[in-house]
């Protein structure tokens, strides 16, 4: 066997035990498990909504208008007399999809970009990070409006547009992490063993830098859901009668004194999602943090 293949084998073994240990630690973390359970439940409900929703989401009753929670409508109705619970369930389909997919896009681009820039350093790093600076500075709104004109309105573009802004900060955080990791012994050891830079980044650097990334990601998902409401305002995103949590919240805000339930329930659902994500995120970080575990 060549040295490289031995190394690969060792790596693979190390890798798998790292993940296994992490899973073990995670499964002992109650808040994290609870968070995971809540998110799974939300996703399940979102998937099953067309079959389990109590009402048709578009059906209006203008004469009924906005009514507080009642036996017929558990969470009340909106100004068109539509059932709020149904609206939240359908809104969840969009918001969860946007939240998770757009964040995943941002994560993928941001983490790879930041890791490569941070690891390579020097001129490559400078060019890559200045590109990030440029994208930061461009007027976002005009950018979105243009994207829409060029590509027309569709959901794919929505994911792309959100991913396109959110990856920038991810890249910065990742780069900072990688820069400090690069000096550490285990990376230098891997370099001296002759592993390719990409392999080192993927196997050694990224897993060790995941902590802050996970924390930032859990914060990103809810803000992405709210960003979607702004993009809908620009015309990208969902069109009525479809809705999303972000839209329900922004409409609810307008009438928070007259019809507080229209704000409270969508807000509550978003807050629960945020906390669930947070507990899960913290659990994941602790589980993956080798140093913390040794302590």
């Amino acid at each position: 066997m060549s040295t490289t293949s031995i190394n690969a084998l060792v790596d693979a073994e190390q890798g798998s035990s790292l993940w296994r240990d992490a899973w073990l630690r995670l499964s002992r973390n109650r808040p994290a498990l609870a968070g995971f359970a809540v998110l799974t439940l939300f996703v399940l409900v979102a998937i099953l909504t067309p079959w389990v929703a109590p009402y048709d989401y578009a059906q209006q009753n203008l004469e009924l208008g906005a009514t507080p929670p009642s036996a017929d409508h558990w969470l009340g109705t909106d100004i068109f007399g539509r059932d709020l619970l149904t609206q939240i369930m359908y809104g969840g389909r969009i918001s969860l999809a946007v939240g998770f997919i757009a964040t995943a896009v941002a994560l993928l681009i941001g983490v790879s970009w930041g890791a490569i820039a941070g690891y390579m350093g020097g001129r490559i790093d400078a060019v890559m990070m200045r590109l990030v600076d440029i994208l930061y500075a461009l007027p976002f709104m005009i950018f979105i409006v243009l994207l829409m004109v060029v590509f027309g309105r569709n959901m794919l573009l929505l994911f792309l547009a959100i991913g396109a802004v959110e990856w920038l900060t991810m890249a910065r955080i990742m780069r900072a992490q990688v820069q400090s990791l690069r000096q550490q012994e285990f990376v230098e050891a891997a370099v001296s063993l002759g592993l390719s830079p990409l392999a080192i980044i993927w196997r050694h650097v990224i897993p060790n830098a995941l902590g802050p990334i996970i924390v930032y990601t859990t914060l990103t998902v809810p803000s992405v859901m709210l960003l979607e409401a702004f993009l809908s305002f620009l015309g990208l995103g969902v069109q009525p009668p479809e809705t999303s949590w972000g839209l329900l919240i922004s409409f609810g805000t307008e009438t928070m004194e007259e019809y507080p339930w229209l704000l409270f329930f969508p807000g509550l659902v978003l807050a629960i999602t945020l906390f669930a994500l947070n507990f899960l995120g913290d659990g994941l970080r602790d589980a993956l943090d080798v140093r913390g575990a040794k302590d």
Binding site: D133, I134, P139
Partner: peptide, 20 residues
């Protein structure tokens, strides 16, 4: 390094707003 960054930002924005 900031100089080329700003120049690109200006240029892109300049044309971006005009095509919008």
């Amino acid at each position: 390094q900031a100089i080329p960054v700003l120049l690109v930002v200006i240029t892109v924005t300049f044309f971006l707003v005009r095509v919008a």
